[in-house]
Amino acid sequence: MDRISELTARALALLGGDPQADRAVPPTGFTARLTLFTAAAMAFLAVFAIALSLATGRLADRWSAELARTATLRISAPADQADAQVRAALTVLEQTPGVASARALSDDEERALLEPWFGPDLPLDALPIPQLIEIVETADGYDATGLRARLQAEVPGAVLDDHTRWRQPLVTAANRLRMLGWVALALIGGATAAMITLAAQSALAANAQVIRVLRLVGARDTYIARAFVRRFTLRAAAGAALGTLLGVMAVAILPDGGDAGGFLTGLGFTGLGWLAPLMIPPLAGVTAFFATRAAALRTLRTQS
């Protein structure tokens, strides 16, 4: 606890700063603008990386949770046998342990499923569309092999699709996309650190004479580094705050496709997820702090 208090006090002291010490280093317009722009641009991209990760995470969870508990029974039978086979299938399903519920989709529901491909007003009666039965499992699930065997014997036109075949690749893809989002975030952090390091080195090189004078009057490396570190930390945090604000606004105005929307229209934040971008400015500040400190101390070592 004492350690946390000490670190907090040091962080506040850094942000509060020592105006006199800060004045020892003259303002550096170019590196200031470069740092602000880099931090803002990277924060803007980071908002999208976070949004991507959270959205794909939600997608993977939803596909895993929803599809894992459902299955579809498709009945393809001659028109005169269709109703009988549906009834027989529902009877089998009602008797199957692990099936919580089973119901045949109505014509309207089947029409809604096909509408994205065939358009509205699809004449289902005139087309040999199979009848679909939605199955919802209990928590324990059912014995798919046993159910298939029984259906084969009692409902010859029935095909059980438990979604495993296409669900798993989708969930895998969504999980990989989520991971890629975090990798992108790490790359953004690394690129930010690299850019700030270059800007800090440039500022240090431009102020070689200032550093020499400070050394001659007895300044320690940490004193000299502090003036640069504080400056770059605040610049990076301010730039990141601006970039984050713009990124969040951009995400907020992305079109919402609602239930009919696909993956891209679901890219965004929900609930507490909107708070996630708030981490970006302090993280940018911390990144800048360590990048500048390392660059400054390394440069000061070589200049001695």
Binding site: R215, L216, V217, G218, A219, R220, D221, L300, R301, S304
Partner: peptide, 10 residues
């Protein structure tokens, strides 16, 4: 070290 030199310079 550099810190000690800095202190001596004071």
């Amino acid at each position: 070290n550099r810190d000690e030199i800095a202190l001596a310079r004071r």
